Amino acid sequence: MRTRNMAHLTWPEVKDAVERNAGIILPIGSTEQHGLHLPLCVDSVLPFELGKAVAENLDMIVAPPVNYGYRSRPTTGGGQTFIGTTSIKGQTLMNTVEDIIDEFIRHGFKRIVLLNWHFENANFIYESAFLAAEKIKAIKPDVKIMVMELPFQTFSEETMNFIFPEGFPGWGIEHASIFETSLMLYLRPDLVLFDRAVDDCADDCPWYDLLPIPEKIVAKSGTLWKATQASEEKGRIAWSELVPTVTEVINKELPK
């Protein structure tokens, strides 16, 4: 087809896609600080790029992203302490995603993928999918919804060792650090100010939350680990494994 970007299609082209049982991918992200060197749109850009990368082989189209996510938390994104981070309530996110799924089903889509990147959106979007599925399971049992809350969690040991030669700190701490910076350097270098990248961390990183948020658990730059160790090559290696992994899973669970 002419393009896999739903927003650039005409309504008759979307109708044609539905009639041949094409699927649809909804990228879900956030508007959240990503350190001194990355833009606020990282969590929306990356799932959108991933959606486009897998759409052709799966005969899917990629819907406009949900660009706002649930509120940032200190130990996985810096928390609601940075100018620019613009978040919505959990209920607002759930209602938005559920409404969009309802509309996809109204259009006639039967293969729906929620492709999330923002850590804090997890569980909320599952609830949206669950509620949407419950409403139509008796009348449209052929509609399938896949929820990928964190599609980047599974990499080979070889790839993990290459990206994180000094050890892996965990995906939460990795916010705006090696992995995301490397992917952006590979996919959207025009959006990266790599000369401003810093290695940083909070003075304390507890396993629990505190409100109001104390300064000691927030990294001052917004980068929670070692962004300077990122590279375009690391992004290329990660992407070359991530795309086929996601493609394989969708093809397995939502075959055309």
Rank of each mutant, 00 (worst) to 15 (best):
L46T: 07
P64Y: 10
T92N: 03
E19P: 13
N57T: 08
R71G: 13
L115D: 09
A53F: 08
T81A: 01
P244T: 12
V97T: 05
G170P: 13
A7C: 14
T3Q: 03
A129P: 08
E232W: 04
C201D: 14
E149A: 04
T245A: 00
P39I: 02
K226P: 13
Y186L: 09
I125D: 02
D43L: 02
V45F: 14
K256M: 10
S177I: 13
Q229H: 15
E166D: 14
Y68Q: 02
G69R: 04
G29M: 14
Y208E: 04
G79L: 03
K234Q: 08
E253L: 04
F168G: 02
M6Q: 12
V113F: 07
L93D: 02
P12Y: 10
R71L: 11
S182I: 10
R188I: 03
L131G: 10
T228K: 12
S156W: 00
D200V: 15
R73T: 12
F104N: 05
T247F: 07
T159R: 00
G79C: 07
R73I: 13
A176K: 11
E180N: 14
I25K: 04
I237R: 03
P74H: 13
P39S: 00
M6C: 10
E180T: 15
T92I: 07
E180C: 12
F155R: 00
N161W: 00
E103R: 08
I213V: 15
E19C: 04
Q153E: 04
A133P: 01
I237S: 00
N116F: 09
T228S: 06
H175R: 11
E174C: 13
T10H: 07
P27E: 07
I100C: 01
L131D: 13
E98I: 06
L115Y: 13
E166W: 11
D204K: 15
D204F: 13
R2Y: 15
A122L: 06
S182K: 15
A132F: 05
E215W: 08
T86I: 10
N67M: 12
V198N: 05
N251T: 03
S156P: 00
I163P: 09
A176N: 14
C201R: 15
T85S: 06
P151I: 04
A227C: 07
W225I: 09
A138F: 01
D209P: 11
E32N: 06
I125R: 01
